[in-house]
Design a protein around this nucleic acid. Sequence first.
DNA 1: AAATTGATTGTCATATTTGAAAATTTATTC
DNA 2: GAATAAATTTTCAAATATGACAATCAATTT
Lengths: 197, 197
Amino acid sequence: MGRPSLQEQRTAEILTAYELCVARHGLDGATQERVAAQAGVKRTLLRHYLGNKDEMVEALIKHVVARFNSETDQMIAALPKTARPKALLDILFGPLGITETASVLTINALGAASDRFPKARTGLLAAMERMHDAVAKELSQDYPDADITACRAAAFGICHLYFSIDSLMMLDPPQDWLDQARQAANTHLLNLEGTLK
Amino acid sequence: MGRPSLQEQRTAEILTAYELCVARHGLDGATQERVAAQAGVKRTLLRHYLGNKDEMVEALIKHVVARFNSETDQMIAALPKTARPKALLDILFGPLGITETASVLTINALGAASDRFPKARTGLLAAMERMHDAVAKELSQDYPDADITACRAAAFGICHLYFSIDSLMMLDPPQDWLDQARQAANTHLLNLEGTLK
DNA sequence: AAATTGATTGTCATATTTGAAAATTTATTC
DNA sequence: GAATAAATTTTCAAATATGACAATCAATTT
């Protein structure tokens, strides 16, 4: 009984706002005031739902890692039945990218502070490895004759090219760059086509 | 007459400390206190040499862009007479990288705040373009038969793979990743060898 | 409509950050 | 060693950030 809980909803709203602030201002620059303003709530609500600052950071790390993993899953799930690698590049380097919430910037900021937050380090490493693996799996399925090591290298190249591009979106880079990124990513596919085991 | 000026030396020391703090804590998390502690001076000296916070940020941007350009030049200057592209990969993905001062992390943090500091945006874009051009030039010189567009794409892929790797060094990634990065970068060279105009 | 559970707001003390200026110290030249 | 220019330290006020807790408001159940 009693008033229905908004715990989940509010927590998600606040963490999304937090994510955005961290992307723009860095982990230590994402003050409670800023996050509260971004989320459109009073600062004291942050404490109510997420506890003190250390606990907020812990929650943020979990949230970011979960989102990262979720986006990896969505990306794979969105692939068609055929020509999956090309479609994957369309998703990563297409007009949108997965870049809704500047998530790679948040990841960078968390990574930069990972010496103070060990869980950020382990969580991000695991999430990235997970993405590497998912992409590598796609590649070796579509290029069954290619060397597995080559597939992993290609997957790595594609993933991190995407990370770099996504980090740079704040700079509003020229279209050239996006085209080159796409072409560079495609090079990895071409290489797998050409190089047999 | 009068006491000899330490302007240049102190300014450089402070900006280097500032750079490090921005890499770790983000632009807004790099407080004057932190920078002063990192530089080993009193906080008020920052003001003495660099003015108020906005002026400090402006100076930091100039410093970072200058360093970036300088490192690009050094990198090119360090290449041997022959097999320059391979040597370039050795520099970028070798045991050290150019990663002395976590400069790519600083660049990420500045980029993330570039909507508030237009000079960061223009400066970083120009410096990156400069690096792209330098690498592309090396590639097209060593692979004169390769398409110029392909060279640019390869240069882009190599540069940004490096950026991504360098950003991730704080996570102390497994050796695998570094190997894969190197191999992925090398793929771009192989592609230029194989693809003729 | 009374009780209850949780959302929301308000307040206060404390600590950190920043800005600004004055006072002091130190190294050089004449 | 007096004058001088610059480094360095000291000090104070204002703004911002955080933590902790109390008070109020709103929706649901019995």
